[in-house]
């Protein structure tokens, strides 16, 4: 726990920026580090505004704080996660997800940005151009849902956790996220009927994705903007448990801090670690470390 934060992370990635990099190096490195397990979590729900990006950013920050190396992949054309934690504007980045998905795998090292507003968290930027990427993927690759999985395969064993922020749609970008992921979290806006409608469709897509990614495991639904006192929130909680089957015990409360942190380009813990919402994300990170048996340094947490 007191190992310097991010140390392994930087060591693990240093080869990526080697000018002599070639595909071969990935593999030689992987055999070295084969002990390290990488968990890839897609955070997805095609209902907009249900807390996908907030969850990705703060989960990333909390996991990094626990000493894990974390990569955020922003697959949303709105690129809000990138605008929040990226030091560059997505339009200034030469290789974003949009380019990565359509180019050769050699571009991968150029796509990863280690320097972000959150220490220990790397980023593959999103881009407005992802909208077009989605259209082009259909035309240029034979298995358009599996491009992301192929492109990030070399990162297995390098990061502890890869978090994918999905766009609010069920189209090709989301399929790519689900095909590349080992785990899935579905944030649901607590108290919203609309949010519940979408879940059924998402679960249908997940079933289809299992044909190409049978190992995809649903961690559960995460209630966001939850307010115990409201009747609807309690009702939705019951409905979500019933429909999705798995409900994460931790509930993320409503908080003005969430919007403040987006403006401040900080994580919630950096803005105010004592706030309830920051503490819940911390608990969520701890729960995942335990549930997914993530190792920090040499010992399980």
């Amino acid at each position: 726990m007191c190992r310097p934060r991010g140390q392994q992370h930087f060591k693990g990635l240093s080869f990526l920026s080697l000018p002599t990099y070639n595909g071969h190096k990935f593999y030689s490195y992987r055999t070295h580090m084969s002990a390290k397990k990488t968990v890839t979590i897609a955070v997805s729900n095609h209902k907009g505004g249900c807390g996908k990006t907030t969850t990705v950013i703060n989960l990333a920050a909390e996991l990094a704080k626990l000493g894990l190396s974390v990569l955020v992949i922003d697959l949303d054309p709105q690129a809000n996660a990138s605008l929040h934690i990226g030091k560059k504007h997505p339009s200034e980045v030469s290789v974003t997800c949009a380019e990565l998905l359509l180019s050769e795998i050699e571009k991968l090292p150029l796509a990863i940005h280690e320097d972000t507003h959150i220490e220990g968290v790397s980023l593959i930027y999103g881009s407005l151009l992802l909208g077009r990427t989605e259209d082009e993927l259909k035309d240029v690759v034979p298995r358009p849902s599996e491009e992301l999985r192929d492109k990030i395969r070399p990162l297995q064993g390098i990061y502890d956790v890869i978090l994918i922020d999905c766009p609010p749609s069920l189209k090709l970008l989301t399929s790519n996220a689900l095909a590349a992921a080992s785990h899935l979290i579905i944030p649901i806006e607590s108290g919203s009927q609309y949010g519940m409608y979408g879940v059924t469709d998402l679960l249908r897509l997940v079933e289809k994705i299992r044909r190409i990614n049978p190992a995809l495991e649903l961690i559960g639904a995460l209630l966001v903007r939850h307010d115990e006192r409201q009747t609807v929130c309690k009702l939705i909680e019951g409905a979500a448990r019933e429909q999705i089957g798995k409900l994460i015990d931790i509930k993320i409360p409503t908080s003005t801090k969430v919007n403040q942190s987006a403006i401040a380009q900080m994580s919630l813990r950096e803005l105010d670690r004592t706030s309830k919402v920051a503490r819940e994300y911390k608990r969520l990170a701890e729960l995942l470390v335990e549930r997914l048996q993530l190792t920090v340094g040499d010992e399980p947490l």
């Binding site: 407005l128 403040q260 403006i263």
Partner: peptide, 25 residues
Amino acid sequence: DLKGMLQSKLQQNNLRHTASGQEVE
């Protein structure tokens, strides 16, 4: 302090995004 910081940050963020001139399809 927080309010002041948020205010100037918000302005910066919006300015940066507007200035980026992203193409919309």
